[in-house]
Design a protein around this nucleic acid. Structure first.
Lengths: 396, 396
DNA sequence: AAATATAATGAAAACGTTCTCAATTAATTA
DNA sequence: TAATTAATTGAGAACGTTTTCATTATATTT
């Protein structure tokens, strides 16, 4: 498509009737131009077809915009005559207020941003569900952002949400230690939007936080495996920032029991085309970990729910028996866990509690711009080890 | 809390210094009032702390707002001197444009609304995941709304999203036949926002649609059960609008094979405190259906994934064996289906395809305000029956 | 150097609300 | 009826951008 520009001065002269020659000479070009103008105009007209504003309502009702605003907005006072006139007019015109303009004035958007790794992870989706439910009751909508544990994407979302001027932010951050001190990040996080951190802390950033007791949960699970007689225990998912504290818990339990753990037991590879913490990582990492019957751990501990699923798939695929060949304790409970043969032992965390507490604190933060009790700025919820049948008992 | 109003004229006079008596008499009241004013002021000052506008950037850079806008927005032309001055100023002020103001002018919000039954349903969450991913690449954000199959809530969300002036809408509607003709609904749906219907059609509303072949999927599953020798087949979830077409498919298959189905085989109860189509409905309905060994169907067909989970839980809980006591074919495949004993036969539908096609069509709709080929306005994706071991074989 | 074309600029008008302020009208009291 | 209080109203500014338009500065051609 050929572009061309029209000289402003020529246009000016044209207006003044000085040059008509130009017009003739460039007739064809000009025509296509004016066609474009007409198209554009039509398009705009189309779009604006019937976007009735409060002004239209006011006109139809025979009152001022101010009065229309008062009755529609339910503030100030208006005579019953005005009230009904405006309401009728609004109904007749099918008037729906423009929330953007309202946001502009009121300086809020009634929108919250939720930044998580992956909404298709049941843990996050049930959090999202609950958050959305609580928020909806308070008239807020929820924007969902999947980072896939990529801190670049997190920052990009952060910026977009800031541009959108969301009223609040709830974040399960992918940020790792090293990055968190970067200027840019800090600047973003200091950018004044009420923010609640969930699922895991962001190292080096001091914001209200609601997490499970990741350390203790992993510590208990590992201790349980040790009590059942396992000495060589593998861990899956250590490359994900969420899971750092869980790895810590594992290590602590091992050390307290004078058990050594070689590096190869702590799977921390990343795989091509596999987003971290996903089912596929669970499959690949488990395959690798259990490949060699000589060095194979007698128990594995996948550090999140999707990894657990992946591990189960890999174990099944390799024809290994649970718990005879390999024991497993999963992170996060799931509906089908008791139905598997054997039923799977898991560390259970309450997405319900996390979501509820975090949402209410966020709402508090939004309306008060501070938390009522600074004391419990960091909330840590305890996990529960649900013992079923997947750990065996080598101890006896 | 006691309310009070202050007389405007008194204030006016106060300003003019005429009445100080009033002040004294009402000291306490006025004090609390001015305290509130101060609080409010402080609050506002706090909020406005450092919201740098493009005007601030322009001032610091020593250019006009127009020029600043041009370099920041990347349109029009500006001297390299201006460009760097503005960019520097923006960086220094940590300027982040106000998207609301932009939306106001540009008449778009770069936001899409997704209305579904429940984001914690894996089927919907994986759709949401994919939709969000595609949208993010095009610079759109996604607002998620859970209706819990409640058409009231759907309408309320619809209105909110319209107020927010989202650029597009993707809806798995909870609307049933009877409701769809209501004026209000139609008005909403005709309200010009580009909209794609997914998962199920909205009866009586003519909009671009992307669905699985619900009828055929259910027909094939039922036919499979019949082939395996089942004659008394129960269905779970028929009270949900999504599933109407699936029930139709079931009925058709039954009829073609000259099988009768009593009403009690088609579970359509609603349970208190249980949202339709949820795991708990699956549990309750299955319990009821299988309660009586005399009338018990030899096979059941839960019509969505959560109902399937619930059915499995109930069957396990009742100590029944699959497929000897009761066969089952589930709707929607799931990762653990092959790992259960026995592995579960399912109707598989591709959330990937639905999400992808729907999203791309929506984007097309937004930019062109019409679909390129009207012919395939309604897209129906075929399902796949994945036969595993949960249906037994009574035929031999 | 004059004439012309192009690039760069700032003022100001939108966009659709909310809300203050000043004024007018209605209701109440003296 | 006059004086006072209360209720109702409309004009217009503001929110922070984008973008048109008219103009001025710069570059290019005769």
């Amino acid at each position: 498509m050929k572009t061309f520009s029209i000289n402003y001065h020529l246009f000016k002269r044209e207006k003044e009737g000085i040059i008509n020659i130009f017009l003739k000479e460039n007739e064809n070009v000009l025509n296509s131009f004016s066609k474009r103008r007409i198209m554009f105009k039509k398009n705009m007209d189309n779009r604006n077809e019937k976007e009735n504003t409060i002004r239209d309502v006011a006109n139809l009702a025979g009152v001022s915009v101010a009065t229309a605003g008062r009755v529609l907005g339910g503030y100030g006072s208006a005579s019953s005559k005005s009230v009904s006139a405006v309401k009728d007019a609004a109904a007749k015109l099918n008037y729906i207020p423009n929330g953007i303009a309202q946001s502009m004035k009121k300086k809020n958007t009634k929108t919250i941003g939720l930044i998580i790794a992956n909404i298709s992870n049941p843990y996050f989706s049930s959090i999202a569900r609950l958050v959305e439910e609580v928020l909806a009751k308070e008239g807020y909508n929820l924007i969902i952002c999947n980072t896939d544990e990529d801190s670049e994407r997190e920052l990009s979302y952060l910026r977009t949400l800031y541009e959108k001027r969301v009223d609040g932010l709830m974040i399960a951050s992918a940020l790792k230690d090293s990055e968190s001190s970067e200027d840019e990040v800090l600047k973003m996080y200091k950018n004044s939007i009420p923010t609640i951190i969930i699922d895991r802390e962001i190292p080096g950033i001091d914001l209200p936080t609601v997490t499970s007791d990741n350390f203790r949960g992993a510590y208990e699970a590992t201790t349980h495996l040790i009590k059942m007689g396992h000495k060589k225990i593998g861990v899956i998912g250590s490359n994900i920032s969420t899971l750092f504290r869980r790895v810590d818990g594992y290590k602590q339990a091992m050390e307290e029991n004078f058990l050594t753990f070689d590096d190869y037991l702590i799977s921390n590879k990343t795989y091509d085309n596999v987003s971290p913490g996903d089912v596929n990582e669970g499959i690949f990492a488990t395959r690798e970990l259990l490949k060699d019957p000589e060095t194979r751990p007698t128990a594995i501990f996948p550090l999140n729910n999707l990894l657990t699923t992946g591990a189960l798939i890999a174990i099944d695929e390799m024809g290994l028996r649970i718990p005879e060949d390999v024991a497993i304790v999963g992170w996060d409970d799931f509906d089908l866990a008791p139905l598997l043969k054997p039923p799977i032992t898991v560390v259970k965390q309450s997405s319900y509690n996390i979501a509820n507490i975090a949402t209410n604190r966020l709402l508090e933060l939004i309306s008060n711009s501070s938390l009522s009790s600074e004391a419990d700025k960091k909330v840590t919820l305890s996990t529960e080890l649900v013992v079923r049948g997947s750990c065996g008992n080598k101890a006896n």
